[in-house]
Design a protein around this nucleic acid. Structure first.
Length: 589
RNA sequence: GGUCUGGUAGUUCAGCUGGUUAGAAUGUCGGCCUGUCACGCCGAAGGUCGCGGGUUCGAGUCCCGUCCAGACCGCCA
């Protein structure tokens, strides 16, 4: 038997028991006549003592140990004379009688501690060592518990977890597919699913009624801190539901997860915000509503002042930063630089300081009277002591920039507390969005999303105005998930394909199986999918999803530990009927 | 595809306008130490300054290219 207890469970009431422990050597403190070793496993740390007076030989052996050696010890649990209140096992220690080295270890390239000295690159290369660290392991334990609670809740609501295939078919629209060559069908390829979308709809046709799956999805697009080429979704679909039923069901899931994983009670219904209002008040379809600072449109108020920037702007909007009237020139310059960064793209920043004495000071004093500036402050709901920040320009771009500025101010003012959670549903998304390059409409959500009944008549005359039965769950400015009520009528689906520019033949070739299925009594249905990794990282209070994934890939889609992707042998290529034709840039690598 | 930041000891970093032998902390190794738990004290080893080219009497430092890593824009229904 390798162990009778784990390294995290022994307490004062175990004193005098003889125990066997196995684990890794975390730290050796050699005091000469006496040596202490911290023995670590997943469950905790237990201190071992070697005393040269009573166990000279053992003491000598203990000195031979190194960090991360795997050892097994037998000894007696004793009460410490000097207790350590910082750890749960700190009242006891093990007087070791014998020990065995189960495995030696090379010196690890970084220290296995909470505050490691390892940089990201090293930690990824030696991920199995990084995973020994509390921080990373705790994230994965949270992930485990969350998966468990998702299953618990959805099971209690009669959902059936059903697996869907991973080798499927490439379709146009949406993200770039990962493709897998078929050996048995020369020249043909499978695609890895971007989501199990059509399968879950087919399960509804099959009468499964309530489906879910915690499932890997794949998208071959460029990565970010919160985007991996393979990621996990909580994928769900329900029959005989309208939007209201879905929002209620999954609001229930969200509340259950908040309660069980973070012990947070979310009072009342999640607020709902139309896409239009989200853009108008926050410049984003995933607003962070932990704080206010809503946009105020000032376009009409500031026109014809002779200030060219405002006069020529399609949109002028501002936010009110509470209590910031005291900002120095330096701070304001820094904010100006911030909004002028190419990624944000504003041309400049206008401010009005509403001083505590009731006076105003602005960067556009030349063009506006004090009365006018006060009026602007009034519309922006500013009170003495506040600072109004204004951007102007093309509507869409300015809203986006103002969104970034708002988030930056929220950050500076400490309004984005990681332990505060503000969920909301963003609803009434547009069904379609116009693509300038392709000169056609694309489905904003996906081609199976149903238009709002009252907007269907607009499909021909003004497709861009049609709203969809689509919704996103947004928490703290992070898009946690989204979904829609689907089209379940063959005719409407064909109509949708035609608006998207598919010929009937193309639609038949790509999605014939789905439309065919819809001919056999498809129930009304709809669903939602949540980004599991993002949700876990939100609960863990971290910004990157990499640390809630056991073996993530880097920002170039590379696994630096196993060194993938990699080349395959010419025999493998031959077998797959593939020949490589590399571009020059690829050859240089 | 683009923008930005970084790459110096095992590790995390410092290294100014180019100028003597490239430093600190930590880790490692050796010695001392019987109550440590960030143990302490003494000592030692440890460097292709990512790689290639250029400018210069002289390059870790400046320039060009390139590779790697990270953040972001485009992209991601």
């Amino acid at each position: 038997m390798y162990r009778t207890h784990t390294c995290g469970e022994l307490r004062i009431n175990h004193v005098n028991e003889t125990v066997t422990l196995s684990g890794w050597v975390q730290k050796i403190r050699n005091l000469g006549g006496m040596t202490f070793i911290d023995l670590r496993d997943r469950y905790g740390i237990t201190q071992l003592v070697f005393n040269s007076e009573t166990h000279q030989e053992l003491c000598n052996q203990a000195r031979e140990l190194g960090r991360e050696y795997v050892i097994q010890i037998e000894g007696n649990v004793a009460e410490r004379s000097n207790k350590n209140t910082k750890i749960p096992t700190g009242e006891i220690e093990i007087l070791v009688d014998q020990f065995t080295i189960l495995n030696s270890s090379e010196l690890p390239p970084f220290t296995i501690e909470d505050d490691t000295d390892g940089g990201d690159e090293l930690r990824m290369k030696y991920r199995y060592l990084d995973l020994r660290r509390n921080m990373v392991r705790k994230n994965l334990e949270l992930r485990h518990r969350m998966g468990f609670e998702v299953r618990n809740y959805l099971n209690s609501q009669n959902f059936i977890e059903t697996e869907t295939p991973v080798l499927i078919k490439s379709t146009p629209e949406g993200a770039r597919d990962f493709v897998v060559p078929s050996r048995m069908q020369p020249g043909q390829f499978y695609a890895l699913p971007q989501s199990p979308q059509v399968f879950k709809q087919l399960l509804m046709v099959a009468g499964f009624d309530r489906y879910f799956q915690i499932v890997k999805c794949f998208r071959d697009e460029d990565l970010r801190a919160d985007r991996q080429p393979e990621f996990t979704q909580i994928d769900c679909e329900m029959s005989f539901v309208d939007q209201e039923d879905i929002l209620n069901t999954f609001e229930g899931l969200a509340k259950h997860l908040f309660k069980t994983l973070r012990d947070v009670e979310i009072e009342g219904d999640f607020p709902r915000l139309s896409y239009e209002d989200a853009m108008k008040y926050y410049g984003s379809d995933k607003p962070d509503v932990r704080f206010g600072m809503k946009f105020v449109e000032l376009s009409d108020l500031v026109k014809e002042s002779g200030f060219k920037i405002f006069d020529e702007a399609e949109y002028v909007g501002g936010i009110c930063a509470e209590g910031c009237a005291g900002y120095t020139r330096k701070q304001l310059d820094k904010l100006t630089d911030f909004v002028k960064k190419p990624q944000i793209g504003a041309t400049g920043l206008i401010y009005i300081k509403y001083n505590t004495d009731g006076t105003v000071k602005s960067s556009v004093d030349k063009f506006f009277s004090s009365e006018k500036l006060l009026e602007i402050c009034g519309s922006a709901n500013a009170k003495p002591g506040d600072l109004v920040l204004i951007l102007a320009g093309v509507r869409k771009k300015t809203l986006t920039a103002l969104c970034e500025l708002r988030l930056e101010m929220g950050e500076q003012l400490g309004l984005r507390d990681k332990n505060k959670f503000s969920p909301l549903w963003v609803v009434d998304f547009p069904l379609l969005e116009w693509d300038e390059d392709a000169q056609r409409f694309f489905a904003m959500h996906h081609p199976f999303t149903s238009p709002k009944k009252e907007d269907i008549h607009l499909l021909d005359e003004a497709p861009g105005k049609v709203r969809a039965n689509a919704y996103d769950l947004v928490i703290n400015g992070v898009e946690i998930g989204g979904g829609s009520i689907r089209i379940f009528n063959d005719e409407l689906q064909q109509k949708m394909f035609s608006v998207l520019g598919f010929s009937p033949e193309e639609a038949e070739e790509q999605f014939g199986f789905l439309m065919n299925a819809f001919k056999y009594g498809a129930p009304p249905h709809g669903g939602v999918a949540f980004g599991f990794d993002r949700w876990v990282s939100l609960f863990a209070g971290i910004d990157s999803i990499r640390d809630v994934i056991a073996f993530p890939k880097n920002n170039a889609g590379r696994d630096v530990m196993i060194d993938s992707p990699s080349q395959v042998s010419s025999e493998q290529l031959e077998e797959l009927n593939l020949a490589l034709k590399l571009k020059e840039a690829a050859l240089n690598k």
